[in-house]
Nucleic acid binder design. Structure first.
Lengths: 186, 186
DNA sequence: AGCCTATGTTCGATTTTTGAACATAGGCTT
DNA sequence: AAGCCTATGTTCAAAAATCGAACATAGGCT
């Protein structure tokens, strides 16, 4: 099944997202933009947040696919910020929309994906528990989230945040810290 | 009904047409390119010629829509040749394909559309019979066809055929000739 | 308070897509 | 020339997707 309708819904949504804030986009807008029945929207997605969620996940996966060489935290940060830059307008509109949670979902989820991919490598031979691994993902993704958040707040003027390097240095220590702590517990 | 599948089939076909000659394009190629079931192709189109036919008609209509000011034969020739230029690769591949009829269909049909549109204006107040009108369409479209044919044979090097003006002059006399002949018969 | 618009849900009818099977035709190989 | 292989075109029924209509609800605006 090719599901061109579902694809068209996503394309219309992203298109509208680059025209106006998320809060101003209605289901009606979307279905009118791609010329389908309103019920066809609800057939594919529960609501707009679900649609957004799927797009985020997809874009993150796609981003990761295009960077199969992610094997360092620096690379992870780079990929995450590059994604934010490329989707500047969409991120910006979501950030400006009424429901701030949306924005957090958007960036956080991306960071989680990228960071998780990195940590797969970092923890490959370390023999760490699932709990410790998840803690590391939370810590690092929160750090990245803070970085992007500040960058957005500063007006996104610089093509790439100047303090990326410093954040990388800080994050780099986290997995090692987790591994060390794990050793002490065993 | 939005019919995204039908649209995707056309897009895949045009895409393939710009990659290889028509004769080398199979239904399998098309359905694989857009990831649908082979039967879905046959649901929308009888076969590849029918698909081609629909695309030709559509593109011609669209072309005419974008030139609502067609009111002279010069304009008609210009539109026809511009279409051929813009679809250079597709026309070229069709022209080179085994079944030469395909090529003729392609260009002729376009010419007929544009010329018919022009003649609507030319014969508006002339009170000519349907037979005479159709004769005029045949004459003028054959002239245009010859022009494009030669242009293709010459290697399509010039951005626009140099002798357009001369062909226009020749064609311009045809409707008047028809009208005059019609007067004599009545 | 009343109006208006968007949401989300239900329903059944209709259209579209799919997979599998089959017969056929043409190209290629040996 | 016979056999193999692939693409064609057709059929059938199951499954999936789309549609239009109706309804109750919630929130914004006057």
């Amino acid at each position: 099944m090719a599901n061109f309708t579902k694809k068209a819904i996503k394309e219309s949504f992203v298109k509208l997202l680059n025209e106006k804030p998320l809060a101003k986009i209605s289901v009606k807008d979307i279905v009118e933009d791609c010329g389908i029945n309103r019920n066809s929207f609800y057939y594919h997605f529960q609501d707009i947040p679900a649609l957004l969620e799927e797009i985020i996940t997809e874009q993150a996966e796609e981003l990761i696919e295009n960077y199969p060489e992610i094997e360092s935290l620096e690379k992870g940060v780079e990929v995450a910020t590059q994604f934010a830059i490329e989707n500047k307008m969409a991120v910006f509109h979501i950030y400006n929309s009424v429901n701030r949670d949306m924005y957090e979902q958007y960036t956080m989820r991306l960071c989680r994906h990228v960071v998780a991919r990195y940590l797969e490598v970092a923890f490959k031979d370390a023999n760490v528990s699932r709990e410790d691994s998840e803690l590391a993902v939370r810590l690092v993704s929160c750090a990245l989230f803070g970085l992007v958040y500040d960058w957005l707040n500063s007006g996104m003027n610089e093509e790439r945040p100047a303090d990326i390097k410093r954040v990388c240095e800080l994050c780099k220590g986290i997995p090692e810290m987790i591994i060390e702590r794990s050793r002490l517990n065993n």
